[in-house]
Amino acid sequence: MAGHGGTRVIITALAANVGIAIAKFVAAGITGSSAMITEGVHSLVDSTNHVLLLYGSRRSHKGADGLHPLGYGRELYFWSFVVAVLVFALGAGVSLYEGILHLLHPEPSSEVGIAFIVLGVAAALESWSTWEALRAFNATRGDKSMIRALKDTKDAPTLVVLLENAGALAGLLVAALGIALAQWTGNPIWDGVASVMIGLILAAIAIVLIVEAKGLLIGESADPALVEAIRACAASHAGVRKVHEVLTVHQAPEMVVSVISADFEDSITARDVEQTVRDIEAAVARQFPVVTRVYVRPMGEAASG
């Protein structure tokens, strides 16, 4: 599940976004900038999202019970999906609405120096949050490329923070360009254009998050390297003729359930099979702590076909 590192990433991002949101709304009130209002809404939505991720992280640690025998790990993925929808509906939706409204009724901004100061402070805080998220992400991605690791990761909260921060930094740049162009050209329409562009960026990020969160919520298998390692572990036990299938599914970033189908030697007794099954389950649990539940299913060649 989202452990200490993941929780720290979320809390860091929450602290940064609350401060940024307050500063942006104050600046928006002073300057009247559409892009600053959009950026304020963006940070407010991000702050709400991080609260939901913290709630999901806490819920995912609940132990198994009669209603949920495999635990509540997937609550983390559910709330990650909710966050993705909120980014799309509120973040992108409000940004596009505000931008279009400003395009239809452009108004000049004032005191833009304050806006640039706030944008600079926001960029510094977002960079701090992004650095913390990258540290946690790089600690687990191994030798994979960044793109491959983002696609394969099961750590939804860190993925959300990374992509939201990428969108936030891009949004800050677009907002700064929009305000600068509006001042340089004397045409306030650029402020509205910036808001629309920020909305489109958020929409694109939200779609990526929705797709990734949906896959995790449905249930994704563990890394192929882990699957093969589990297979090798099971096959190494005496009396195992062949391991037919190793099924895995992530219940949470650090909670994997595995089912192993194995064919045993005909010469060993039923008692020996039972003992070997227990040995395999104990060995997998010991060697791979991320596998919180493991089940071995004895089966013959005919059954496997």
Rank of each mutant, 00 (worst) to 15 (best):
residue 303 A to H: 10
residue 64 A to N: 03
residue 174 V to N: 02
residue 197 M to F: 09
residue 224 P to G: 06
residue 127 S to D: 04
residue 148 R to A: 15
residue 274 E to H: 10
residue 221 S to V: 06
residue 244 H to P: 08
residue 234 A to L: 07
residue 78 F to W: 05
residue 12 T to A: 15
residue 187 N to T: 07
residue 24 K to A: 03
residue 216 L to D: 04
residue 180 A to D: 00
residue 281 E to K: 08
residue 248 T to E: 01
residue 262 A to L: 13
residue 224 P to N: 05
residue 108 P to F: 01
residue 159 L to I: 13
residue 52 L to T: 05
residue 272 D to M: 08
residue 246 V to Y: 00
residue 11 I to R: 08
residue 287 Q to A: 13
residue 277 V to Q: 07
residue 178 G to A: 06
residue 184 W to L: 13
residue 305 G to T: 09
residue 158 T to Q: 03
residue 153 T to E: 12
residue 133 A to I: 11
residue 236 S to K: 05
residue 237 H to R: 08
residue 260 I to L: 07
residue 152 D to M: 07
residue 134 L to N: 09
residue 201 I to L: 15
residue 198 I to M: 13
residue 130 T to G: 04
residue 184 W to D: 00
residue 251 Q to M: 13
residue 40 G to W: 02
residue 260 I to E: 01
residue 4 H to D: 11
residue 25 F to R: 06
residue 9 V to I: 12
residue 282 A to W: 03
residue 207 I to G: 07
residue 104 L to H: 03
residue 117 I to R: 08
residue 279 D to M: 12
residue 227 V to S: 07
residue 292 T to S: 09
residue 25 F to I: 11
residue 58 R to W: 12
residue 181 L to M: 07
residue 276 T to F: 10
residue 267 S to G: 02
residue 154 K to W: 04
residue 119 L to Q: 10
residue 280 I to Y: 00
residue 238 A to P: 11
residue 300 G to D: 06
residue 156 A to N: 12
residue 177 L to K: 06
residue 284 V to I: 15
residue 139 A to Q: 11
residue 200 L to D: 05
residue 110 S to Q: 10
residue 166 A to W: 06
residue 136 A to E: 10
residue 65 D to F: 07
residue 124 A to G: 09
residue 289 P to F: 08
residue 150 L to M: 15
residue 296 V to T: 10
residue 113 G to N: 02
residue 116 F to K: 05
residue 115 A to V: 07
residue 74 R to K: 15
residue 273 V to H: 08
residue 236 S to Y: 03
residue 1 M to K: 05
residue 254 E to Y: 14
residue 218 I to Q: 01
residue 238 A to I: 14
residue 87 V to E: 00
residue 257 V to Y: 02
residue 139 A to G: 12
residue 236 S to F: 04
residue 79 W to A: 00
residue 10 I to K: 03
residue 303 A to N: 09
residue 46 D to F: 05
residue 111 E to S: 14
residue 41 V to P: 06
residue 177 L to V: 15
residue 227 V to R: 14
residue 91 G to K: 01
residue 244 H to A: 10
residue 67 L to F: 11
residue 12 T to N: 11
residue 188 P to I: 04
residue 294 V to N: 00
